[in-house]
Nucleic acid binder design. Structure first.
Length: 338
DNA sequence: GAGTCGTGGAG
DNA sequence: TCTCCAAGACT
């Protein structure tokens, strides 16, 4: 028996005993999982924790049980249902992908990695994951977990992100034909729960006999990482305008860019220095404090001003607005309503 | 290749 | 409080 097959068997045995039961996984012993649900869960899980994505997955599959249902949905309904999950380009691409499957593929997902890769919002990771998990095709599924496991297993001295190609090549050496759907999930589960960021739990790991990082005595040293740039700070103003019936004035943001395609509050530009920008309509504006929010590449202080008035807006009841807004605007609206 | 693109939990 | 970063994709 060759070492790679022994390593694989050790990890798959561990997975059978300790793998996480996640709601979107097909129950053990059941036939192949629904490609629609596999794809939906993988998109939701991009850069997102399982705990955060899980309720969204349940809501989406209850409301849109098939890819045809999702393809037929209204854009605004899908964007509102995604509100709070972040990376809103995923929601736009999700709809585009569902409609491509419905219109160009007869309602059936492509069953090859290359076919999947051509779909909107489906990159190298997601194409490989769906091909393996939904269609049983051996694929090199590499996410942040797998990169970390490879970096430790092989003591890779190149820092991320430059190490990505090398880590992917190393992961490819472990791909084989048996249990193709379970293999990536076993690797990712190990990375999430045992070979985790920070201090790994090597006492619970089935791979220590192969692991160069473990042998070094300092497995937490990997993966090496390049220093990140500092996060700049920006400021702006958010206006909470309400009509005589108490409804809130919202605007639809442009499709591209930050929070693209989502509804939002009217705001000033978010500049480096606080600008005393002109409000969307003339009114008796009053200060209502400020909120802080942190995005991936900048942090933001948003001053909130409130008034009563009228104008050409999307007038929305406060409860509906809070449910449909991305978090930064939900915070600002809550401040304005308080 | 480097920047853009959210959010919230963990340490 | 602050840093990290999660089943990444796109330009």
């Amino acid at each position: 028996m060759r070492p790679v097959s022994v390593l694989r068997a050790a990890l798959l045995d561990w997975y059978d005993a300790h793998g996480r039961s996640l709601t979107w996984r097909a129950p053990p012993g059941s036939p192949r999982p629904d490609p629609y649900k596999v794809w939906l869960s993988e998109v939701m899980l991009q850069q997102t924790t399982t705990a955060h994505a899980a309720p969204y997955f349940e809501a989406f599959t209850a409301r849109w049980p098939t890819v045809a249902d999702l393809a037929a949905a209204e854009d605004g309904d899908v964007m509102a249902a995604w509100a709070g999950l972040g990376y809103y380009a995923r929601a736009r691409n999700l709809l585009a992908c569902a409609r491509a499957v419905a219109n160009d593929h007869g309602g059936v997902f492509p069953d090859t990695e290359a076919g999947l890769l051509a779909l909107p919002g489906v990159g190298a990771y997601t194409a490989a994951a769906v091909a393996a998990i939904a269609f049983g095709r051996p694929a090199n599924v590499v996410d942040g977990n797998v990169e970390r496991v490879m970096a430790r297993l092989f003591a890779v001295e190149t820092p991320l992100p430059a190490a990505k190609p090398e880590l992917k090549r190393l992961a490819a050496t472990l791909v084989a034909d048996d249990r193709p759907g379970d293999w990536p999930q076993a690797l990712m589960d190990l990375g999430a729960t045992v070979c985790r960021p920070g201090a790994p739990l090597c006492g619970a790991c089935p791979l220590t006999v192969w692991c160069a990082g473990y042998a070094s005595g300092q497995p937490g040293r990997w993966p090496l990482k390049a220093k990140k740039a500092d996060r700049p700070h920006r400021t702006g103003i958010a206006w909470v305008l309400r009509d005589e019936e108490g409804r809130v004035a919202l605007v639809r943001r442009p499709d591209k860019g930050l929070l693209g395609g989502m509804t939002g509050l009217p705001t000033s530009d978010w500049s480096v220095s606080q600008a005393d920008a002109a409000p969307p309509v003339a009114a008796d504006w009053r200060e209502a404090g400020a909120i802080e929010h942190v995005f991936t590449h900048f942090s933001l202080t948003l001053t909130v001003r409130t008034a009563t008035g009228a104008g050409d807006f999307l007038w929305t009841d406060p409860d509906a607005a809070l449910a449909a807004l991305p978090t930064v605007f939900r915070k600002a609206l809550e401040r304005g309503l308080a």
